[in-house]
Measured scan of single mutants.
Amino acid sequence: TEEVEKIVRELQKRGVSQEEIQRILKRNGIDPRDVEHVVRRLR
């Protein structure tokens, strides 16, 4: 989703690792598959 993408991009800008990003998003109830998808697209 748009929202997830924004969050991921923001965290990446701050130098947060992929694993940490995924952990944060999972904690916020976001589907890990969505996270994977977004992270892969932004690489």
Score class of each variant (00 low, 15 high):
1 T>P: 10
1 T>A: 10
1 T>G: 06
1 T>W: 14
2 E>I: 10
2 E>N: 09
2 E>S: 11
2 E>A: 11
2 E>D: 11
3 E>F: 12
3 E>R: 09
3 E>V: 09
3 E>T: 09
3 E>C: 00
4 V>F: 05
4 V>R: 01
4 V>A: 05
4 V>H: 02
4 V>S: 02
5 E>F: 13
6 K>C: 05
6 K>A: 08
6 K>H: 08
6 K>D: 06
6 K>I: 07
7 I>F: 08
7 I>D: 01
7 I>L: 12
7 I>N: 02
7 I>G: 01
8 V>R: 01
8 V>Q: 01
9 R>L: 06
9 R>K: 09
9 R>T: 05
10 E>C: 09
10 E>W: 10
10 E>Q: 09
11 L>M: 12
11 L>A: 04
11 L>P: 00
11 L>N: 00
12 Q>D: 07
12 Q>T: 13
12 Q>V: 15
13 K>T: 09
13 K>C: 03
13 K>H: 08
13 K>F: 07
13 K>A: 07
13 K>Y: 07
13 K>G: 08
14 R>L: 11
14 R>Q: 09
14 R>F: 11
14 R>S: 09
14 R>V: 08
14 R>G: 08
15 G>E: 03
15 G>I: 02
15 G>W: 04
16 V>N: 06
16 V>F: 12
16 V>H: 12
16 V>S: 05
16 V>M: 12
16 V>Y: 12
17 S>Y: 02
17 S>R: 07
17 S>C: 00
17 S>I: 05
18 Q>F: 15
19 E>M: 11
19 E>H: 11
20 E>D: 12
20 E>L: 09
20 E>P: 00
20 E>R: 08
20 E>H: 06
20 E>M: 07
20 E>I: 06
20 E>F: 06
20 E>C: 03
21 I>Y: 03
21 I>E: 00
21 I>W: 07
22 Q>Y: 15
22 Q>E: 13
22 Q>C: 05
22 Q>M: 15
23 R>D: 11
23 R>C: 03
23 R>T: 12
24 I>A: 05
24 I>S: 02
25 L>N: 00
25 L>T: 02
26 K>L: 15
26 K>C: 03
26 K>E: 14
27 R>L: 13
28 N>C: 13
28 N>S: 13
29 G>T: 02
29 G>D: 04
29 G>N: 05
29 G>R: 02
29 G>S: 03
29 G>K: 03
30 I>G: 01
30 I>D: 01
30 I>Y: 15
30 I>V: 13
30 I>R: 02
30 I>L: 07
30 I>P: 01
30 I>C: 02
31 D>G: 03
32 P>M: 05
33 R>M: 09
33 R>I: 11
33 R>P: 02
34 D>S: 05
35 V>P: 01
35 V>W: 12
35 V>H: 02
36 E>K: 04
36 E>V: 04
36 E>L: 06
36 E>A: 09
36 E>W: 09
36 E>S: 03
37 H>L: 13
37 H>Y: 08
37 H>M: 13
37 H>D: 15
37 H>R: 14
38 V>N: 00
39 V>Y: 08
39 V>T: 05
39 V>C: 15
40 R>I: 13
40 R>V: 09
40 R>F: 03
40 R>P: 02
40 R>C: 03
41 R>N: 13
41 R>W: 05
41 R>S: 12
41 R>V: 11
42 L>R: 03
42 L>Y: 04
42 L>I: 10
42 L>K: 04
42 L>N: 04
42 L>F: 04
42 L>D: 05
42 L>M: 04
42 L>H: 06
43 R>Q: 15
43 R>D: 13
43 R>I: 14
